[in-house]
């Protein structure tokens, strides 16, 4: 069974790579050829199954669609873009896994069915792409955030909750930041979202850098993975597009 599986995979690999060289898109997205230059310019893009994107087949809650990006066995990654081709705002986030593993889990707003693709840039200037389609009922981006209807949202703005799970081999840090993450697409509510997050250890060394955009869900939750235990004294810092600062100790 397993062998059959591998044979099938091998048979499928060849045409996929060939398509990639021809500039076509294995996700069959109608928008990708138009979008591609704005994200990667003229650089070469290869579709690479080491770039794994996970998520539900159908978005049950279009305001909180879980997405995981995990890259295994691809060295020298400089940064990773996550793009939702058919969302009204296509760029979801970007991360640079300095010392953390090249993996990130988050939730996003999805207005309609769309490819969700991750593009990893390696030091040689090549983009490695992977992705999935997620179907959606709609309403994710033009609906006002729920926190906005709660008068107390200003009291908790940018406060952080966190937890680490670790052993000697690996660790995970999960954190939640209270923020409306307004897209600016709901009538009368301007865009208001976290723009930048960084994880640094006690000595100031950066382990993860994250740029986030409007489609990231309200009160965002992120998970980061590390080899071995979490770096000592890890601090989360960052800001939103109104200049409000985020600062919290998130690990021992």
């Amino acid at each position: 069974m397993r062998r059959l599986h591998c044979l099938l995979a091998a048979a499928l690999m060849l045409p996929v790579l060939a398509l990639a060289e021809a500039g076509d898109d294995p996700l069959g997205s109608p928008a990708w050829l138009d979008l591609k230059p704005s994200f990667v310019g003229n650089a070469r893009v290869v579709f690479d199954d080491r770039v794994k994107v996970s998520g539900p087949k159908i978005a049950e809650d279009s305001l909180n669609v879980p997405v995981g990006v995990r890259i295994e066995g691809l060295p020298d990654i400089e940064r990773v873009l996550v793009v939702a081709d058919l969302n009204p705002i296509t760029k979801v986030l970007e991360f640079s896994p300095r010392g953390a593993l090249p993996a990130l889990y988050f939730r996003m707003k999805l207005q309609q069915a769309s490819p969700i693709r991750a593009l990893a840039l390696t030091k040689d200037g090549i983009w490695h792409a992977g992705g999935i389609w997620i179907d959606a009922a709609g309403g994710g981006c033009t609906a006002p955030s729920i926190g906005r209807s709660n008068a107390n949202w200003t009291a908790t703005l940018n406060t952080v909750q966190a937890q680490a799970w670790e052993n000697d081999q690996q660790s995970r840090l999960k954190l939640k930041i209270m923020h409306p993450m307004d897209t600016g697409l709901a009538p009368g509510i301007p865009a208001f979202y976290i723009e930048k997050l960084s994880l640094r250890d006690a000595r100031g060394h950066e382990w993860m850098m994250l740029k986030t955009f409007e489609p990231v869900s309200e009160n965002p939750v992120f998970s980061f993975d590390f080899v071995g235990r979490t770096p000592p004294g890890l601090v989360l810092s960052g800001h939103d597009n109104n200049g409000n600062l985020i600062h919290a100790k998130v690990a021992k």
Binding site: D61, N64, P66, L175
Partner: peptide, 22 residues
């Protein structure tokens, strides 16, 4: 099962997170 994760998982998850100090 997939839909229930969307409905319910975040409330189980919330119980595992603790406030972080500034």
């Amino acid at each position: 099962y997939s839909r229930s994760i969307a409905h319910l998982y975040r409330s189980y998850e919330a119980e595992t997170l603790a406030p972080a100090s500034h």
